[in-house]
Design a binder for these strands. Structure first.
Length: 473
DNA sequence: AGTTGGGCTGCAGTAACTGG
DNA sequence: CCAGTTACTGCAGCCCAACT
């Protein structure tokens, strides 16, 4: 006796996975047997999931709040730790304090610093809050070790270390543009937000990002050999600049430069002819000329994303530049929100097979790509009529920080909230309430107290927790 | 550092389907 | 009807990261 994996059963499996991703293939097999009297092996279920581009990391899952929504005490601190990844204060201080803490490994030390800083900045009693499970979860810990913390505090009081923060100031400097040098000597400009391509260094400071953040992103791009851009500003037909950039990516990258707010070079990174795949979003209402479908469009399929679900299909398409008459063939992924709608967004990629992985990564990065595009177009238009003040976040960071007792560590949190205020607006981080849910490809952060524009700004800044996209909803 | 839960992969075995 | 093909099962073994 054998169960046939029909389209119906596939739908049930996908629905089960969608509603209860924490089940895993074994759990889905059991649920199928119990609720549908349908016996399938875990291999069969795995095949169904993988056929839809669903792949989960091997290895034991975090049993704590895995996939389930959990309330977090000190939700604001969690946001600030996300924010910290952009400049790396916690990391820097952990590195500097290492010499004083021979008994603690670097990882443990980094966690303790975060815990102590957040607990000291909290209004609640230190001893009580460090033992609170929902608080620990918020600062990325599962358990509290009083032995390690008291050792840490003892050493701090003993040595009263003063830490030079120049490194953090450098990390916080804003990068305006990432400049790619290609093997044939040509180059291309991309803003630090990886929103879009530019003809020259970007000057609109909405698109600037801290150096540390941009560097980490570039390293990630190089390691997974995939460059994702939110959109192309091409009007009518695909612009010649985008085509040149795509050509360059195919030839290989010689070097990458990070440019500052005035276009000055901050850092240069050489890479030995790395070739990158790409995916670039586009708005079909604007980019709608010189497009020739080379095959019949297949039926739209549904893909689950961190935000709302999206329908997608892919068509091999020739894009012809109106003026230069040049044409290139790309895999054109069309996206729409509902069945009876026209595609409201598109994604161009060089990848033909299994492009769904790119698509889900793209959607995790820009879950509401249409809104991001429209908002940023307005910002670009407005830039030419209104003056925006220069931003120099590094100036808020002191050159030195002294730690004599646990109370001093609250300074880090105060500094982080001052920096976050510059970028996203004022918020009472200490009193913030919220919860977290970990999903397959993102951490969803829920908080009703944060105004929508601020959530948008947070999401646009591309935060992540433990390498996974963090989205504020 | 060893244990463990959980996903992934490969493979032999087999039921069901297909076409001559 | 039979040989070949396809699709699923059920293992074993591997890998990886959380847990202890």
């Amino acid at each position: 006796m054998r169960t046939k994996v029909t389209a119906h059963i596939k739908r049930i499996i996908l629905r089960l996975y969608a509603s209860k991703p924490y089940l895993g293939v074994r759990g889905i097999a059991i649920a199928l047997k119990e609720s549908y009297r349908c016996v399938l092996s875990k291999s069969a279920i795995s095949t169904v999931l993988r056929s839809r581009g669903i792949r989960t990391r091997a290895g034991r899952k975090d049993g704590y709040s895995r996939y389930q929504r959990a309330a977090i005490k000190g939700f604001g601190f969690l946001l600030l730790s996300c924010f910290d990844a952009r400049i790396g204060i916690f990391e820097h201080i952990a590195k500097e304090l290492r010499v004083y803490m021979p008994k603690l490994s670097y990882g443990v030390l980094a966690r303790i610093i975060r815990l102590v800083s957040c607990a000291a900045a909290s209004d609640e009693d230190f001893e009580r809050i460090v033992r609170d499970g929902s608080f620990l979860r918020g600062v990325g810990l599962h358990a509290y070790s009083s032995r390690e913390v008291s050792y840490f505090l003892k050493r701090i009081e003993e040595y009263k270390p003063a830490i030079n923060c120049q490194q953090v100031r450098d990390n916080a400097r804003l990068v305006s543009t990432v400049k790619f040098y290609f093997e044939d000597g040509t180059s291309g400009y991309c803003d630090a937000k990886f929103s879009t391509l530019w003809d020259a260094p970007c000057t609109i400071n909405h698109f600037f990002e801290p150096f540390q953040h941009t560097l980490a992103r570039v390293e990630h791009i190089l390691s997974c050999k995939l460059l994702m851009l939110s959109y192309t500003k091409s009007f009518d037909s695909l612009s010649a600049a985008v085509m040149r950039f795509i050509d360059g990516l195919g030839l290989g990258i010689k070097a990458i430069e990070f440019l500052g707010d005035r276009g000055q070079r901050i850092e240069r990174k050489t890479c030995a002819g790395v070739r990158l795949s790409f995916c670039i979003g586009y708005y079909p209402k604007i980019l709608n000329k010189g497009i020739f479908f080379l095959e019949k469009a297949k039926r739209f399929r549904r893909i689950r994303t961190a935000g709302a679900d999206v329908m997608y299909t892919a068509v091999s398409t020739r894009f012809v530049q109106e003026k230069t008459k040049r044409g290139i063939i790309l895999n054109n992924v069309l996206l729409k929100r509902r069945e009876r709608m026209l595609p409201a967004w598109g994604m161009l990629t060089d990848k033909k097979e299994r492009y769904e992985t790119y698509l889900s990564r793209y959607l995790a990065m820009w879950p509401s790509m249409e809104d991001t595009f429209k908002d940023e177009m307005k910002i670009i238009e407005r830039f030419f009529v209104t003056e925006t003040p220069d931003r120099h976040p590094e100036k808020l960071i002191p050159e030195k920080m002294v730690f004599e007792s646990k109370e001093d560590f609250s300074k880090i949190v105060v500094l982080l909230s001052a920096l976050a205020k510059e970028e996203f607006g004022a918020l009472d981080y200490g009193g913030l309430e919220g919860s977290v849910r970990r999903t397959r490809d993102a951490y969803m952060l829920y908080s009703r107290l944060i105004p929508v524009p601020m959530k948008k700004a947070f999401n646009g800044a591309g935060f992540s927790i433990e390498g996974k996209r963090a989205l504020l909803v």
